[in-house]
Computed example of a mutant assay.
Amino acid sequence: MAKKTLSVVARKKSFRNWIYGNLTCFSQEHMQTFGYLASMLPVVEDLYEKDEDKVEALSTYTTFFNTEPQIGTMVVGLTASLEEARANGESIDDETINGLRAGLMGPLAGLGDSIIVGTFIPILLGIALGLASGGSVLGPLFYIVAWNLIMYFGMKYAYNRGYSLGSSAVEALVGSESESLRSSIVMIGTMVIGSVAATWINVTTSLNIAGVDIQATLDGIFPKALNLLFVYLCWWLMTKKKINPTLVMLILVVVALVGVLVGVFNPGLSY
């Protein structure tokens, strides 16, 4: 029997289904399950001829799946490679594939959140905010174009890399050598968030006690101290008190309003 090889057309369709539909029918119960299933449809169609074989193969991808969509694209490419191997008679079963998917989705979610959400998006937004100063349309245009181009080609690379590496991608992604990379990325992401907070948040006080300008005193001891205080307050409310971000924003509005009315904050308070 001739060896079955997943066609380039099928891989392109699989990638397209994932990039546009990874959140298809998203719910708290299934998360990205159906988006993943949609991305594997072209793969299964290309590798199997009998309908019963297609149904059996697709049933593998009905189990729960959820990860960071961009970095997680590598898992889709990886399972496409494993499905190709299974179609050629290699000893790969549902348990093996789902074990790899379940084992990778958590670490990749942490890696993706650190790189994409915690580092890359804040950097892009910081640049866009700078370009948008004075009401320039360059800011939003830059972000839309830059994000979509980098996201598309980055995800395409991740898919193809996962497909080419096959099962060897597992060690590269969750092995001991990747731990230092993840720790470094988390550190960089934390520094980026701190830089954004120091640059774009502007909390100042108009308090003057016994002739002492409190804001000037704070600036001399610890510049941006109030910025840090408000960022820490938001973190404490959301992580320790489990208050959702919308309610936290409402709390900040009330604090700002009351603070300005009683003369604690300057009317130019922004965050």
Rank of each mutant, 00 (worst) to 15 (best):
T96M: 15
L47I: 01
T73N: 04
I121Y: 01
F222W: 15
D53L: 02
G21K: 04
E95V: 11
L173Q: 00
F265N: 02
G162C: 04
N227Y: 11
L149M: 14
P245V: 03
F26K: 09
S167A: 15
G134N: 12
Y159V: 07
S178V: 00
S178Q: 06
W236G: 05
D51L: 06
E177I: 00
D213L: 08
L82Y: 04
Y159I: 07
A87C: 10
M74Y: 10
E84D: 06
G135Q: 09
N227F: 10
R161F: 14
G211L: 10
I193C: 10
F120C: 06
A216D: 11
Y143L: 15
Q28P: 03
M105R: 00
I188L: 10
T190D: 06
S168E: 11
P140F: 12
I150C: 13
A158K: 12
D219T: 08
G259L: 03
L131K: 05
V260P: 04
Y159N: 08
E45M: 07
T217E: 12
S133K: 15
L129R: 01
F265M: 05
T217N: 14
Q70L: 05
L82G: 02
S206V: 10
D46I: 01
V212Y: 14
I97D: 00
S164Q: 15
N88L: 05
D219C: 08
H30Y: 15
L58F: 07
V192H: 06
P69L: 07
S270T: 09
M40I: 08
M238G: 07
D93G: 15
P122W: 02
V8T: 12
L233C: 02
A198D: 00
W235R: 10
A85F: 06
Q215F: 09
W147H: 14
F65H: 07
I188W: 00
V55Q: 11
M155C: 15
